[in-house]
Design a protein around this nucleic acid. Structure first.
Length: 556
RNA sequence: GAGCGCGUAGCUCAGCCGGUAGAGCAUCUGACUUUUAAUCAGGAGGUCCUGGGUUCGAGUCCCAGCGCGCUCACCA
Protein backbone atom coordinates (compact mmCIF):
# COMPACT_ATOMS: atom_id res chain seq x y z
CA UNK A 1 0.00 0.00 0.00
CA UNK A 2 1.38 3.37 -1.00
CA UNK A 3 0.66 6.50 0.89
CA UNK A 4 0.74 9.94 -0.68
CA UNK A 5 3.35 11.89 1.31
CA UNK A 6 1.22 15.03 1.21
CA UNK A 7 -1.68 13.07 2.61
CA UNK A 8 0.30 11.51 5.45
CA UNK A 9 1.74 14.90 6.31
CA UNK A 10 -1.75 16.37 6.47
CA UNK A 11 -2.90 13.39 8.51
CA UNK A 12 -0.37 14.12 11.24
CA UNK A 13 -2.06 17.46 11.81
CA UNK A 14 -5.66 16.64 11.01
CA UNK A 15 -8.05 17.40 13.80
CA UNK A 16 -10.82 15.24 12.45
CA UNK A 17 -11.92 13.04 15.32
CA UNK A 18 -10.80 9.68 13.83
CA UNK A 19 -7.26 11.04 13.70
CA UNK A 20 -7.47 12.39 17.22
CA UNK A 21 -8.55 8.93 18.35
CA UNK A 22 -5.93 7.15 16.28
CA UNK A 23 -3.19 9.28 17.81
CA UNK A 24 -3.96 7.79 21.23
CA UNK A 25 -3.05 4.42 19.77
CA UNK A 26 0.05 5.74 18.04
CA UNK A 27 1.32 6.74 21.45
CA UNK A 28 0.46 3.34 22.86
CA UNK A 29 2.33 1.53 20.11
CA UNK A 30 5.33 3.83 20.45
CA UNK A 31 5.52 2.92 24.12
CA UNK A 32 5.94 -0.82 23.72
CA UNK A 33 6.94 -1.02 20.07
CA UNK A 34 4.44 -3.70 19.16
CA UNK A 35 3.67 -4.64 15.55
CA UNK A 36 -0.11 -4.96 15.68
CA UNK A 37 -3.15 -3.45 17.36
CA UNK A 38 -6.60 -4.85 18.02
CA UNK A 39 -9.82 -2.87 17.70
CA UNK A 40 -13.00 -4.25 19.24
CA UNK A 41 -16.70 -3.50 19.20
CA UNK A 42 -19.31 -5.06 21.41
CA UNK A 43 -22.74 -6.33 20.55
CA UNK A 44 -25.49 -7.74 22.72
CA UNK A 45 -27.69 -10.00 20.59
CA UNK A 46 -30.71 -9.80 22.89
CA UNK A 47 -32.66 -8.02 20.18
CA UNK A 48 -32.53 -7.21 16.51
CA UNK A 49 -29.29 -5.57 15.41
CA UNK A 50 -29.22 -2.08 16.70
CA UNK A 51 -28.42 0.91 14.56
CA UNK A 52 -25.97 1.90 17.30
CA UNK A 53 -24.01 -1.27 16.68
CA UNK A 54 -23.61 -0.30 13.07
CA UNK A 55 -22.48 3.14 14.23
CA UNK A 56 -19.89 1.64 16.52
CA UNK A 57 -18.43 -0.58 13.83
CA UNK A 58 -18.48 2.26 11.29
CA UNK A 59 -16.79 4.68 13.65
CA UNK A 60 -14.25 2.16 14.86
CA UNK A 61 -13.39 1.35 11.24
CA UNK A 62 -12.79 5.05 10.64
CA UNK A 63 -10.36 5.22 13.55
CA UNK A 64 -8.70 2.06 12.32
CA UNK A 65 -8.16 3.49 8.85
CA UNK A 66 -6.91 6.79 10.24
CA UNK A 67 -4.45 4.81 12.35
CA UNK A 68 -3.21 2.91 9.31
CA UNK A 69 -2.59 6.15 7.47
CA UNK A 70 -0.83 7.71 10.45
CA UNK A 71 1.46 4.73 10.74
CA UNK A 72 1.71 4.30 6.95
CA UNK A 73 0.59 0.71 7.16
CA UNK A 74 3.55 -0.38 9.25
CA UNK A 75 1.41 -1.66 12.12
CA UNK A 76 -1.03 -4.48 11.44
CA UNK A 77 -4.64 -3.92 12.55
CA UNK A 78 -7.58 -6.19 13.28
CA UNK A 79 -11.16 -5.44 14.20
CA UNK A 80 -13.14 -7.92 16.24
CA UNK A 81 -16.92 -7.61 16.45
CA UNK A 82 -17.63 -9.42 19.67
CA UNK A 83 -21.09 -10.74 20.42
CA UNK A 84 -22.01 -11.23 24.06
CA UNK A 85 -24.29 -14.08 23.08
CA UNK A 86 -23.85 -16.18 26.21
CA UNK A 87 -25.67 -13.57 28.23
CA UNK A 88 -28.87 -14.81 29.87
CA UNK A 89 -32.21 -13.82 28.34
CA UNK A 90 -33.58 -11.32 30.81
CA UNK A 91 -36.80 -10.29 29.19
CA UNK A 92 -38.81 -11.38 26.21
CA UNK A 93 -38.48 -8.58 23.65
CA UNK A 94 -41.73 -6.79 22.81
CA UNK A 95 -41.29 -7.06 19.07
CA UNK A 96 -41.00 -10.83 18.62
CA UNK A 97 -43.63 -13.44 17.72
CA UNK A 98 -44.32 -16.48 19.93
CA UNK A 99 -43.61 -14.53 23.07
CA UNK A 100 -45.21 -17.12 25.32
CA UNK A 101 -42.96 -19.86 23.97
CA UNK A 102 -39.97 -17.68 24.65
CA UNK A 103 -40.97 -17.16 28.30
CA UNK A 104 -39.93 -20.72 29.05
CA UNK A 105 -36.34 -19.87 28.18
CA UNK A 106 -35.87 -16.83 30.40
CA UNK A 107 -32.47 -16.84 32.05
CA UNK A 108 -30.82 -19.18 29.57
CA UNK A 109 -27.87 -18.08 27.43
CA UNK A 110 -29.09 -16.41 24.24
CA UNK A 111 -27.42 -19.16 22.25
CA UNK A 112 -29.70 -21.66 24.03
CA UNK A 113 -32.95 -19.84 23.30
CA UNK A 114 -34.74 -20.80 20.05
CA UNK A 115 -35.12 -17.97 17.57
CA UNK A 116 -38.77 -16.88 17.63
CA UNK A 117 -38.65 -15.63 14.05
CA UNK A 118 -37.82 -18.96 12.45
CA UNK A 119 -38.50 -22.65 12.97
CA UNK A 120 -35.07 -23.75 11.85
CA UNK A 121 -33.89 -24.62 15.33
CA UNK A 122 -31.28 -21.89 15.25
CA UNK A 123 -30.80 -19.97 18.50
CA UNK A 124 -31.94 -16.42 19.08
CA UNK A 125 -28.36 -15.36 19.72
CA UNK A 126 -27.05 -17.04 16.58
CA UNK A 127 -29.89 -15.66 14.48
CA UNK A 128 -29.26 -12.13 15.68
CA UNK A 129 -25.54 -12.56 15.13
CA UNK A 130 -26.30 -13.58 11.56
CA UNK A 131 -28.55 -10.57 11.09
CA UNK A 132 -25.84 -8.24 12.28
CA UNK A 133 -23.19 -9.87 10.13
CA UNK A 134 -25.40 -9.72 7.07
CA UNK A 135 -25.62 -5.99 7.46
CA UNK A 136 -21.95 -5.47 8.21
CA UNK A 137 -21.11 -7.56 5.15
CA UNK A 138 -23.53 -5.64 3.03
CA UNK A 139 -21.68 -2.49 3.85
CA UNK A 140 -18.34 -4.16 3.27
CA UNK A 141 -16.78 -3.74 6.68
CA UNK A 142 -13.60 -5.64 7.33
CA UNK A 143 -13.97 -7.42 10.65
CA UNK A 144 -13.69 -10.73 12.42
CA UNK A 145 -16.78 -11.93 14.14
CA UNK A 146 -16.42 -13.48 17.57
CA UNK A 147 -19.03 -15.26 19.64
CA UNK A 148 -18.72 -15.28 23.43
CA UNK A 149 -20.31 -18.73 23.55
CA UNK A 150 -17.62 -20.10 21.23
CA UNK A 151 -14.83 -18.41 23.11
CA UNK A 152 -15.98 -19.65 26.49
CA UNK A 153 -16.67 -23.19 25.31
CA UNK A 154 -13.46 -23.55 23.33
CA UNK A 155 -11.30 -22.62 26.29
CA UNK A 156 -9.87 -19.48 24.74
CA UNK A 157 -10.78 -17.59 27.90
CA UNK A 158 -9.57 -20.25 30.35
CA UNK A 159 -6.22 -18.73 31.30
CA UNK A 160 -7.75 -15.31 31.98
CA UNK A 161 -10.69 -16.85 33.84
CA UNK A 162 -8.28 -18.57 36.20
CA UNK A 163 -6.45 -15.31 36.68
CA UNK A 164 -9.75 -13.62 37.45
CA UNK A 165 -10.43 -16.24 40.10
CA UNK A 166 -7.02 -15.56 41.60
CA UNK A 167 -7.76 -11.83 42.00
CA UNK A 168 -11.36 -12.43 43.08
CA UNK A 169 -11.08 -10.26 46.19
CA UNK A 170 -9.68 -7.32 44.31
CA UNK A 171 -12.50 -7.53 41.81
CA UNK A 172 -15.06 -7.62 44.59
CA UNK A 173 -13.42 -4.53 46.12
CA UNK A 174 -13.86 -2.70 42.83
CA UNK A 175 -17.47 -3.67 42.22
CA UNK A 176 -19.13 -3.99 45.64
CA UNK A 177 -18.99 -0.29 46.60
CA UNK A 178 -20.94 0.55 43.44
CA UNK A 179 -23.85 -1.75 44.26
CA UNK A 180 -26.96 -1.40 46.35
CA UNK A 181 -27.22 -3.56 49.48
CA UNK A 182 -29.44 -6.20 47.89
CA UNK A 183 -27.30 -6.90 44.87
CA UNK A 184 -24.17 -6.65 46.99
CA UNK A 185 -25.33 -9.67 48.94
CA UNK A 186 -25.46 -11.88 45.85
CA UNK A 187 -22.80 -10.38 43.60
CA UNK A 188 -20.12 -12.51 42.06
CA UNK A 189 -18.01 -11.84 38.94
CA UNK A 190 -18.73 -15.47 38.00
CA UNK A 191 -22.17 -16.51 36.85
CA UNK A 192 -22.41 -20.30 36.73
CA UNK A 193 -24.65 -21.95 34.16
CA UNK A 194 -26.96 -24.27 36.07
CA UNK A 195 -26.63 -27.92 35.02
CA UNK A 196 -30.23 -28.53 36.06
CA UNK A 197 -32.11 -25.57 34.56
CA UNK A 198 -29.61 -24.32 31.99
CA UNK A 199 -29.99 -20.79 33.36
CA UNK A 200 -27.20 -18.29 33.93
CA UNK A 201 -27.32 -17.92 37.71
CA UNK A 202 -26.75 -14.78 39.73
CA UNK A 203 -25.82 -16.45 42.98
CA UNK A 204 -23.24 -15.78 45.68
CA UNK A 205 -20.13 -17.95 45.89
CA UNK A 206 -19.96 -20.05 49.01
CA UNK A 207 -16.42 -21.22 48.36
CA UNK A 208 -13.68 -20.98 45.79
CA UNK A 209 -10.40 -22.69 45.07
CA UNK A 210 -8.00 -20.69 42.90
CA UNK A 211 -5.50 -23.51 42.76
CA UNK A 212 -8.07 -25.96 41.41
CA UNK A 213 -9.79 -23.27 39.35
CA UNK A 214 -13.22 -23.98 40.83
CA UNK A 215 -16.05 -22.14 42.51
CA UNK A 216 -18.83 -23.48 44.72
CA UNK A 217 -22.42 -22.24 44.95
CA UNK A 218 -25.87 -23.41 45.92
CA UNK A 219 -28.22 -24.12 43.00
CA UNK A 220 -31.41 -22.12 43.74
CA UNK A 221 -33.64 -24.71 42.01
CA UNK A 222 -32.36 -27.87 43.62
CA UNK A 223 -30.67 -26.57 46.76
CA UNK A 224 -27.66 -28.66 45.83
CA UNK A 225 -24.19 -27.43 46.66
CA UNK A 226 -22.29 -27.46 43.38
CA UNK A 227 -18.60 -27.08 42.65
CA UNK A 228 -17.68 -26.23 39.12
CA UNK A 229 -14.59 -25.14 37.20
CA UNK A 230 -14.64 -21.52 36.01
CA UNK A 231 -13.24 -22.69 32.70
CA UNK A 232 -14.59 -24.40 29.59
CA UNK A 233 -17.92 -22.59 29.40
CA UNK A 234 -19.32 -23.81 32.73
CA UNK A 235 -19.29 -20.21 33.94
CA UNK A 236 -19.90 -16.88 32.30
CA UNK A 237 -18.66 -13.61 33.78
CA UNK A 238 -20.90 -10.85 35.02
CA UNK A 239 -20.65 -8.23 32.34
CA UNK A 240 -18.25 -5.65 33.77
CA UNK A 241 -15.91 -8.47 34.73
CA UNK A 242 -16.67 -10.06 31.37
CA UNK A 243 -15.66 -6.96 29.49
CA UNK A 244 -12.40 -6.70 31.42
CA UNK A 245 -11.67 -10.41 31.06
CA UNK A 246 -12.26 -10.21 27.32
CA UNK A 247 -10.03 -7.15 26.94
CA UNK A 248 -7.21 -8.97 28.65
CA UNK A 249 -7.74 -12.33 26.96
CA UNK A 250 -7.89 -10.86 23.47
CA UNK A 251 -5.45 -8.01 24.06
CA UNK A 252 -7.87 -5.29 23.00
CA UNK A 253 -6.23 -1.91 22.36
CA UNK A 254 -9.22 0.14 21.37
CA UNK A 255 -12.94 -0.02 22.07
CA UNK A 256 -15.43 2.82 22.11
CA UNK A 257 -18.72 2.88 23.98
CA UNK A 258 -21.80 5.02 24.48
CA UNK A 259 -21.81 7.57 27.23
CA UNK A 260 -24.25 5.50 29.22
CA UNK A 261 -21.36 3.13 29.80
CA UNK A 262 -18.87 5.66 31.14
CA UNK A 263 -18.94 4.23 34.66
CA UNK A 264 -18.74 0.68 33.38
CA UNK A 265 -15.69 1.49 31.29
CA UNK A 266 -13.98 2.87 34.37
CA UNK A 267 -14.80 -0.13 36.52
CA UNK A 268 -13.84 -2.62 33.84
CA UNK A 269 -10.58 -0.74 33.42
CA UNK A 270 -9.84 -1.18 37.11
CA UNK A 271 -10.52 -4.89 36.82
CA UNK A 272 -8.11 -5.05 33.88
CA UNK A 273 -5.42 -3.53 36.08
CA UNK A 274 -6.19 -6.07 38.79
CA UNK A 275 -5.59 -8.71 36.13
CA UNK A 276 -2.26 -7.11 35.39
CA UNK A 277 -3.28 -5.65 32.03
CA UNK A 278 -3.63 -2.21 30.50
CA UNK A 279 -7.16 -1.06 29.64
CA UNK A 280 -7.81 -0.22 26.00
CA UNK A 281 -8.04 3.28 24.61
CA UNK A 282 -11.44 4.49 23.62
CA UNK A 283 -13.92 7.25 23.89
CA UNK A 284 -17.54 7.72 24.78
CA UNK A 285 -19.86 8.79 22.04
CA UNK A 286 -23.17 10.47 22.71
CA UNK A 287 -26.34 8.48 22.53
CA UNK A 288 -28.86 8.41 19.76
CA UNK A 289 -32.21 9.84 20.66
CA UNK A 290 -35.60 9.20 19.20
CA UNK A 291 -37.91 11.92 17.98
CA UNK A 292 -38.91 12.77 21.54
CA UNK A 293 -35.32 13.00 22.78
CA UNK A 294 -35.30 9.61 24.52
CA UNK A 295 -32.42 7.19 24.38
CA UNK A 296 -32.86 4.66 21.59
CA UNK A 297 -32.75 1.16 22.98
CA UNK A 298 -33.52 -2.23 21.62
CA UNK A 299 -35.71 -3.13 24.56
CA UNK A 300 -37.93 -0.11 23.97
CA UNK A 301 -37.88 -0.62 20.22
CA UNK A 302 -38.02 3.10 19.60
CA UNK A 303 -36.02 4.91 16.98
CA UNK A 304 -34.93 3.64 13.62
CA UNK A 305 -33.62 0.20 12.83
CA UNK A 306 -30.90 -0.43 10.31
CA UNK A 307 -33.45 -1.85 7.90
CA UNK A 308 -35.61 1.23 8.28
CA UNK A 309 -32.78 3.46 7.19
CA UNK A 310 -31.85 1.26 4.25
CA UNK A 311 -35.33 1.42 2.86
CA UNK A 312 -34.81 5.11 2.24
CA UNK A 313 -31.13 5.65 1.66
CA UNK A 314 -27.80 4.02 0.88
CA UNK A 315 -25.66 2.66 3.73
CA UNK A 316 -23.04 5.33 3.01
CA UNK A 317 -25.48 8.00 4.11
CA UNK A 318 -25.87 6.26 7.45
CA UNK A 319 -22.10 6.08 7.77
CA UNK A 320 -22.02 9.80 7.02
CA UNK A 321 -24.49 10.37 9.83
CA UNK A 322 -22.26 8.38 12.16
CA UNK A 323 -19.20 10.40 11.19
CA UNK A 324 -20.78 13.70 12.12
CA UNK A 325 -19.95 14.87 15.65
CA UNK A 326 -20.00 11.64 17.61
CA UNK A 327 -19.84 13.58 20.85
CA UNK A 328 -23.11 15.40 20.25
CA UNK A 329 -26.43 13.74 20.98
CA UNK A 330 -28.26 13.17 17.73
CA UNK A 331 -31.87 12.52 17.02
CA UNK A 332 -32.15 9.51 14.82
CA UNK A 333 -35.52 9.24 13.11
CA UNK A 334 -37.05 9.37 9.66
CA UNK A 335 -36.82 13.12 9.30
CA UNK A 336 -33.02 13.17 9.43
CA UNK A 337 -32.61 10.85 6.44
CA UNK A 338 -33.13 13.33 3.58
CA UNK A 339 -30.66 15.69 5.14
CA UNK A 340 -28.07 12.96 5.63
CA UNK A 341 -28.48 12.00 1.98
CA UNK A 342 -27.96 15.56 0.79
CA UNK A 343 -25.03 16.20 3.09
CA UNK A 344 -23.35 13.03 1.95
CA UNK A 345 -23.81 13.92 -1.71
CA UNK A 346 -22.50 17.40 -1.07
CA UNK A 347 -19.43 16.00 0.65
CA UNK A 348 -18.86 13.57 -2.21
CA UNK A 349 -19.14 16.35 -4.78
CA UNK A 350 -16.76 18.63 -2.87
CA UNK A 351 -14.07 16.02 -2.31
CA UNK A 352 -12.26 15.98 -5.70
CA UNK A 353 -11.50 19.70 -5.54
CA UNK A 354 -10.31 19.76 -1.95
CA UNK A 355 -6.78 19.94 -0.64
CA UNK A 356 -5.66 17.07 1.59
CA UNK A 357 -6.27 19.07 4.69
CA UNK A 358 -9.94 19.41 3.83
CA UNK A 359 -10.23 15.94 2.42
CA UNK A 360 -9.09 14.38 5.67
CA UNK A 361 -11.87 16.26 7.43
CA UNK A 362 -14.43 15.23 4.82
CA UNK A 363 -16.69 12.39 5.86
CA UNK A 364 -16.42 10.59 2.51
CA UNK A 365 -12.69 10.05 2.97
CA UNK A 366 -13.40 8.24 6.22
CA UNK A 367 -16.49 6.42 4.98
CA UNK A 368 -14.71 4.98 1.95
CA UNK A 369 -11.36 4.30 3.60
CA UNK A 370 -9.59 7.03 1.68
CA UNK A 371 -11.03 6.18 -1.74
CA UNK A 372 -14.43 7.81 -2.24
CA UNK A 373 -16.10 7.07 -5.59
CA UNK A 374 -16.56 9.77 -8.21
CA UNK A 375 -19.96 11.40 -7.81
CA UNK A 376 -22.54 10.37 -10.40
CA UNK A 377 -23.60 13.06 -12.84
CA UNK A 378 -26.51 13.41 -15.20
CA UNK A 379 -26.44 14.54 -18.83
CA UNK A 380 -28.62 17.61 -19.12
CA UNK A 381 -28.63 20.97 -20.83
CA UNK A 382 -25.74 19.85 -22.98
CA UNK A 383 -23.40 19.11 -20.08
CA UNK A 384 -22.83 17.03 -16.98
CA UNK A 385 -24.93 18.24 -14.07
CA UNK A 386 -25.03 17.09 -10.46
CA UNK A 387 -27.89 14.75 -9.61
CA UNK A 388 -31.11 16.37 -8.50
CA UNK A 389 -31.28 16.66 -4.74
CA UNK A 390 -33.16 14.16 -2.63
CA UNK A 391 -35.64 16.78 -1.44
CA UNK A 392 -36.33 17.63 -5.03
CA UNK A 393 -37.06 13.99 -5.76
CA UNK A 394 -39.29 13.85 -2.71
CA UNK A 395 -41.14 16.89 -3.99
CA UNK A 396 -41.54 15.21 -7.32
CA UNK A 397 -42.87 12.05 -5.77
CA UNK A 398 -45.33 14.08 -3.74
CA UNK A 399 -46.67 16.20 -6.56
CA UNK A 400 -46.71 13.31 -8.98
CA UNK A 401 -48.66 11.43 -6.36
CA UNK A 402 -46.88 8.35 -7.51
CA UNK A 403 -45.70 5.13 -5.98
CA UNK A 404 -44.03 4.10 -9.22
CA UNK A 405 -40.44 4.85 -10.24
CA UNK A 406 -41.39 5.09 -13.92
CA UNK A 407 -43.54 8.15 -13.30
CA UNK A 408 -40.68 9.94 -11.60
CA UNK A 409 -38.37 8.93 -14.39
CA UNK A 410 -40.89 10.48 -16.78
CA UNK A 411 -40.41 13.83 -15.09
CA UNK A 412 -36.65 13.38 -14.90
CA UNK A 413 -36.34 12.59 -18.60
CA UNK A 414 -38.06 15.80 -19.49
CA UNK A 415 -35.23 17.58 -17.73
CA UNK A 416 -32.50 15.23 -18.88
CA UNK A 417 -33.54 13.29 -22.00
CA UNK A 418 -30.45 11.09 -21.95
CA UNK A 419 -30.81 9.99 -18.35
CA UNK A 420 -32.02 6.48 -17.68
CA UNK A 421 -32.01 3.97 -14.85
CA UNK A 422 -29.21 1.99 -16.48
CA UNK A 423 -27.04 5.04 -17.18
CA UNK A 424 -27.71 6.51 -13.74
CA UNK A 425 -27.88 3.69 -11.22
CA UNK A 426 -27.35 6.00 -8.25
CA UNK A 427 -30.14 8.25 -9.38
CA UNK A 428 -32.34 5.22 -9.94
CA UNK A 429 -31.78 4.10 -6.37
CA UNK A 430 -32.54 7.59 -5.15
CA UNK A 431 -35.76 7.61 -7.13
CA UNK A 432 -36.78 4.38 -5.43
CA UNK A 433 -35.78 5.71 -2.04
CA UNK A 434 -37.71 8.91 -2.66
CA UNK A 435 -40.81 6.91 -3.51
CA UNK A 436 -40.39 4.70 -0.48
CA UNK A 437 -39.99 7.75 1.73
CA UNK A 438 -42.94 9.44 0.11
CA UNK A 439 -45.12 6.35 0.56
CA UNK A 440 -44.11 5.95 4.18
CA UNK A 441 -43.96 9.51 5.42
CA UNK A 442 -45.76 11.87 3.09
CA UNK A 443 -48.59 9.99 1.41
CA UNK A 444 -50.31 9.05 4.71
CA UNK A 445 -50.47 12.72 5.67
CA UNK A 446 -52.30 13.80 2.57
CA UNK A 447 -55.67 15.37 3.25
CA UNK A 448 -58.13 15.25 0.42
CA UNK A 449 -60.79 17.94 0.37
CA UNK A 450 -64.43 16.97 -0.20
CA UNK A 451 -65.57 18.87 -3.34
CA UNK A 452 -68.52 21.26 -2.95
CA UNK A 453 -71.30 21.65 -5.55
CA UNK A 454 -69.41 23.93 -7.93
CA UNK A 455 -66.28 21.86 -7.59
CA UNK A 456 -68.21 18.69 -8.30
CA UNK A 457 -69.66 20.19 -11.43
CA UNK A 458 -66.21 21.33 -12.57
CA UNK A 459 -64.67 17.96 -11.84
CA UNK A 460 -67.50 16.35 -13.80
CA UNK A 461 -66.57 18.46 -16.80
CA UNK A 462 -62.96 17.50 -16.31
CA UNK A 463 -63.93 13.83 -16.26
CA UNK A 464 -65.82 14.26 -19.56
CA UNK A 465 -62.93 16.17 -21.06
CA UNK A 466 -60.51 13.41 -20.14
CA UNK A 467 -62.93 10.86 -21.50
CA UNK A 468 -62.80 12.55 -24.88
CA UNK A 469 -59.05 13.22 -24.89
CA UNK A 470 -56.76 10.88 -26.82
CA UNK A 471 -54.60 8.64 -24.66
CA UNK A 472 -51.44 10.31 -25.94
CA UNK A 473 -52.61 13.90 -25.48
CA UNK A 474 -49.71 16.29 -25.05
CA UNK A 475 -49.12 18.29 -21.90
CA UNK A 476 -49.72 21.52 -23.79
CA UNK A 477 -53.02 20.35 -25.27
CA UNK A 478 -54.33 19.20 -21.92
CA UNK A 479 -53.20 22.43 -20.32
CA UNK A 480 -55.01 24.50 -22.97
CA UNK A 481 -58.15 22.41 -22.58
CA UNK A 482 -58.03 22.88 -18.83
CA UNK A 483 -57.91 26.63 -19.20
CA UNK A 484 -60.88 26.59 -21.54
CA UNK A 485 -62.78 24.42 -19.13
CA UNK A 486 -62.06 26.69 -16.17
CA UNK A 487 -62.97 29.79 -18.19
CA UNK A 488 -66.54 28.55 -18.41
CA UNK A 489 -66.94 28.44 -14.63
CA UNK A 490 -67.62 31.87 -13.10
CA UNK A 491 -65.85 30.99 -9.83
CA UNK A 492 -62.57 30.46 -11.60
CA UNK A 493 -62.70 33.45 -13.93
CA UNK A 494 -60.16 36.16 -13.36
CA UNK A 495 -60.68 39.36 -15.36
CA UNK A 496 -57.39 40.79 -14.09
CA UNK A 497 -55.28 38.02 -15.53
CA UNK A 498 -52.57 38.92 -17.98
CA UNK A 499 -54.03 38.91 -21.48
CA UNK A 500 -57.60 38.54 -20.25
CA UNK A 501 -60.40 40.19 -22.20
CA UNK A 502 -64.11 40.53 -21.32
CA UNK A 503 -64.93 37.87 -23.92
CA UNK A 504 -62.13 35.60 -22.85
CA UNK A 505 -61.52 35.85 -19.09
CA UNK A 506 -58.34 34.56 -17.47
CA UNK A 507 -58.23 31.65 -15.04
CA UNK A 508 -57.49 32.13 -11.37
CA UNK A 509 -55.11 30.00 -9.33
CA UNK A 510 -58.08 28.84 -7.37
CA UNK A 511 -58.94 26.40 -10.14
CA UNK A 512 -55.62 24.60 -9.89
CA UNK A 513 -55.59 24.75 -6.13
CA UNK A 514 -58.97 23.03 -6.14
CA UNK A 515 -57.54 20.26 -8.30
CA UNK A 516 -54.62 19.75 -5.94
CA UNK A 517 -56.80 19.73 -2.84
CA UNK A 518 -59.39 17.34 -4.18
CA UNK A 519 -57.29 15.09 -6.41
CA UNK A 520 -53.82 15.06 -4.81
CA UNK A 521 -54.58 15.93 -1.21
CA UNK A 522 -51.99 18.69 -1.35
CA UNK A 523 -52.08 22.46 -1.19
CA UNK A 524 -49.82 22.72 -4.19
CA UNK A 525 -48.95 20.61 -7.12
CA UNK A 526 -47.40 20.22 -10.53
CA UNK A 527 -48.37 21.94 -13.75
CA UNK A 528 -51.51 19.96 -14.27
CA UNK A 529 -51.22 19.43 -18.01
CA UNK A 530 -47.79 17.88 -17.49
CA UNK A 531 -49.14 15.77 -14.69
CA UNK A 532 -51.89 14.35 -16.89
CA UNK A 533 -49.50 13.64 -19.74
CA UNK A 534 -47.17 11.69 -17.46
CA UNK A 535 -49.66 10.15 -15.12
CA UNK A 536 -51.89 9.10 -18.00
CA UNK A 537 -55.21 10.40 -19.26
CA UNK A 538 -57.16 7.32 -18.25
CA UNK A 539 -55.62 7.12 -14.80
CA UNK A 540 -56.27 10.78 -14.18
CA UNK A 541 -59.86 10.23 -15.23
CA UNK A 542 -60.30 7.44 -12.74
CA UNK A 543 -58.70 9.64 -10.10
CA UNK A 544 -61.34 12.28 -10.82
CA UNK A 545 -64.05 9.66 -10.61
CA UNK A 546 -62.82 8.55 -7.24
CA UNK A 547 -62.83 12.13 -6.01
CA UNK A 548 -66.42 12.54 -7.24
CA UNK A 549 -67.43 9.34 -5.50
CA UNK A 550 -65.95 10.73 -2.29
CA UNK A 551 -63.50 7.86 -2.04
CA UNK A 552 -60.39 10.01 -1.73
CA UNK A 553 -61.65 12.23 1.07
CA UNK A 554 -63.06 9.23 2.91
CA UNK A 555 -59.83 7.25 2.75
CA UNK A 556 -57.79 10.10 4.19
C1' G B 1 -26.10 12.73 43.96
C1' A B 2 -22.53 11.89 39.77
C1' G B 3 -21.36 12.33 34.57
C1' C B 4 -22.20 14.21 29.70
C1' G B 5 -24.31 17.09 25.74
C1' C B 6 -26.63 21.39 23.94
C1' G B 7 -27.69 27.01 23.87
C1' U B 8 -25.81 30.89 16.72
C1' A B 9 -31.60 34.03 11.80
C1' G B 10 -38.83 32.61 12.51
C1' C B 11 -37.45 26.85 12.22
C1' U B 12 -33.50 22.96 11.67
C1' C B 13 -28.61 23.42 12.08
C1' A B 14 -23.08 24.40 10.03
C1' G B 15 -19.13 27.37 11.55
C1' C B 16 -12.07 23.89 10.56
C1' C B 17 -5.60 25.96 13.73
C1' G B 18 -8.98 32.63 17.19
C1' G B 19 -9.11 37.00 11.93
C1' U B 20 -15.47 41.51 9.54
C1' A B 21 -21.27 35.62 11.29
C1' G B 22 -23.19 31.05 7.09
C1' A B 23 -26.59 27.18 4.67
C1' G B 24 -31.36 24.89 3.90
C1' C B 25 -36.41 25.77 4.78
C1' A B 26 -39.81 29.85 5.78
C1' U B 27 -40.57 35.09 4.50
C1' C B 28 -40.37 39.52 1.07
C1' U B 29 -39.37 41.81 -3.99
C1' G B 30 -38.78 41.23 -9.11
C1' A B 31 -38.35 38.29 -13.85
C1' C B 32 -40.63 34.16 -16.51
C1' U B 33 -45.16 31.25 -17.43
C1' U B 34 -52.24 32.05 -20.66
C1' U B 35 -51.22 34.75 -12.72
C1' U B 36 -49.42 26.75 -10.72
C1' A B 37 -43.89 24.92 -7.40
C1' A B 38 -38.26 20.80 -11.05
C1' U B 39 -36.71 28.05 -13.20
C1' C B 40 -33.72 32.55 -12.35
C1' A B 41 -32.11 37.16 -9.84
C1' G B 42 -32.21 39.99 -5.50
C1' G B 43 -33.60 41.65 -0.32
C1' A B 44 -34.65 41.52 4.76
C1' G B 45 -33.74 39.11 9.23
C1' G B 46 -28.62 37.60 14.56
C1' U B 47 -26.80 41.17 22.01
C1' C B 48 -23.69 33.90 18.60
C1' C B 49 -27.50 32.33 26.65
C1' U B 50 -25.15 35.79 30.62
C1' G B 51 -20.82 37.79 33.20
C1' G B 52 -15.68 37.84 33.68
C1' G B 53 -10.60 36.43 31.77
C1' U B 54 -6.53 35.59 27.96
C1' U B 55 -5.50 38.22 23.21
C1' C B 56 -4.02 43.42 18.72
C1' G B 57 -8.55 40.54 17.86
C1' A B 58 -13.19 35.56 20.89
C1' G B 59 -19.23 32.39 18.20
C1' U B 60 -14.43 29.76 18.67
C1' C B 61 -9.80 29.21 24.14
C1' C B 62 -10.16 29.54 29.98
C1' C B 63 -13.25 30.42 34.57
C1' A B 64 -17.99 31.15 36.83
C1' G B 65 -23.13 31.22 36.31
C1' C B 66 -28.16 30.53 33.97
C1' G B 67 -31.41 27.59 31.01
C1' C B 68 -32.84 23.02 28.42
C1' G B 69 -32.08 17.90 27.89
C1' C B 70 -30.03 13.16 28.46
C1' U B 71 -27.43 9.22 30.94
C1' C B 72 -25.79 6.45 35.21
C1' A B 73 -26.81 5.25 40.16
C1' C B 74 -31.25 -2.54 39.22
C1' C B 75 -29.50 -5.06 34.48
C1' A B 76 -26.53 -5.16 30.21
Amino acid sequence: MDYDPEMTAAAQESRAWPFEEARKLVGRVAKDGRSSVLFATGYGPSGLPHIGTFGEVARTSMVRHAFEVLTEGKVATRLVAFSDDMDGLRKVPDNVPNRAAMEAHLGKPLTRVPDPFTDSGISFGAANNARLRAFLDRFGFEYEFASATDYYASGRFDATLRKLLAVYDEVMDVILPTLGPERRATYSPFLPVSPSSGKVLQVPMVARDPAAGTITYVDPDTGARITTPVTGGAVKCQWKADWAMRWVALGVDYEMAGKDLIDSVKLSGRIVRALGGVPPEGFNYELFLDEGGQKISKSKGNGLTIDDWLRFADPETLAHFMFQKPTAAKRLHFDVIPRAVEDYQGALAAYPNQAWRERLGNSVWHIHAGAPPAPEVIEARGGAEPLPSFTMLLNLAAVANSHEPQVLWGFLCRYAPHASPSANPTLDRMVRYAIAYYSREIAPRKRYAEPDAVERETLGKLRDLLGRAPADASAADVQAALYDLARSVPRYQDPNAKGATPERPGVSNEFFNMLYRTLLGEERGPRFGSFVALFGVARTKSLVEKALAGELAKAA
